[in-house]
Write a protein that binds this DNA or RNA. Structure first.
Length: 291
DNA sequence: ATACATTTTGGCTCAAGTGT
DNA sequence: ACACTTGAGCCAAAATGTAT
């Protein structure tokens, strides 16, 4: 059993901590246990229960109505399949519940169902990335529950590698050859794999250097192989890693290459070398893939 | 539309917890 | 010991919903 603080619950459920306290006080919706210092803490079952409530709440159920329902009624309503069409929320919720309890088989089954309903790209963009956001791979705030993140992302990674493998080989006449990497201390691989997937789907040639790659490795590769562009991203908050300097140096050592930089940390960059393009939105990202 | 009730959010202070 | 962060609990204000 894990212990979650009210802040964790806020991040995972999207319900403000303040609101959670009010619900608890007014509707007896939850009864978290208390630590020595009277701080609330929640266990797995509490979290799942809150996720269901949050789901119903987001579906438009009034909190006062939800409060009148029994735990079982809430559960039955929340997993009711007739909500499913055209909404990804329920898949995210199901996957959350499965990963909270580390239920591998259920997790995989839900992924497959979601993929057959939505198709692969929708699955990644609308379900997997939001899911990872919630579980802890928080691109921005960086609040993590490592075991859950690892659990979810390793399955998804495998699935993504398989998906990439199934795609047709790149067009041999393709003018573009994109080098993909994530810099030193960036260990999140999924966005990089997904970029690989998108490029390969467009039959663009890709060189995949992977995560945690030094500038020197990148430069050395570029000096020997004909690469037309580079793409890298940072989503981890690399506070003490001198991101500006490293990006600047990379751009200066490869003045004749176009370099594209994505990920949530883009907005924190303070340098702007001429050959560097920032990809801040998913539209910009897609236009990079399709250019 | 207006008045009214419900629900959520923000501000504030104090206490507890955490890191140096 | 110190500063800093986080949560509790209270009240007020804002936002949202409902009935007339």
């Amino acid at each position: 059993m894990n212990h979650f603080s009210i802040r964790d619950i806020e991040n995972l459920s999207g319900i403000k901590a303040h609101t959670l306290r009010v619900w608890e006080q007014r509707f007896n919706l939850l009864s978290p246990k208390r630590k020595a210092g009277n701080h609330r803490f929640y266990d797995n079952d509490d979290l799942k229960y809150i996720l269901r409530i949050a789901y119903l709440y987001n579906q438009g159920y009034k909190i006062s109505r939800i409060a009148c329902l029994s735990e079982k009624e809430i559960h039955d309503l929340a997993v009711d399949v007739k909500h499913v069409r055209d909404n990804h929320e329920i898949f995210i919720n199901w996957l959350m519940e499965a990963s909270i309890d580390f239920e591998q088989e259920r997790f995989e089954t839900i992924l497959r169902t979601a993929e057959s309903t939505l198709g692969y790209e929708e699955l990644v963009l609308k379900v997997i990335f939001p899911l990872l956001n919630k579980i802890g791979m928080l691109w921005l705030t960086g609040r993590v529950i490592p075991a859950h993140e690892h659990f979810a992302s390793s399955f998804i990674k495998n699935q993504m590698v398989v998906a990439i493998d199934k795609l047709e080989l790149p067009d041999p006449g393709s003018a573009r050859k994109v080098l993909l990497f994530a810099p030193r201390n960036e260990f999140h691989e999924l966005p990089l794999l997904f970029m690989w997937y998108l490029l390969k789907k467009n039959r663009i040639s890709v060189v995949y250097l992977g995560i945690n790659t030094d500038n020197e490795t990148v430069v050395r590769y570029c000096s020997r192989q004909p690469v037309t562009e580079l793409y890298f991203y940072i989503i981890t908050n690399l506070v003490n890693c001198n991101m500006d300097k490293r990006v600047q140096e990379l751009a200066e050592s490869l003045p004749d290459k176009e370099i594209f930089f994505g990920g949530s940390q883009v907005c924190k960059l303070n340098v702007s070398p001429p050959n560097l393009t920032l990809l801040k939105t998913s539209q910009e990202l897609l236009s990079f893939v399709n250019r």
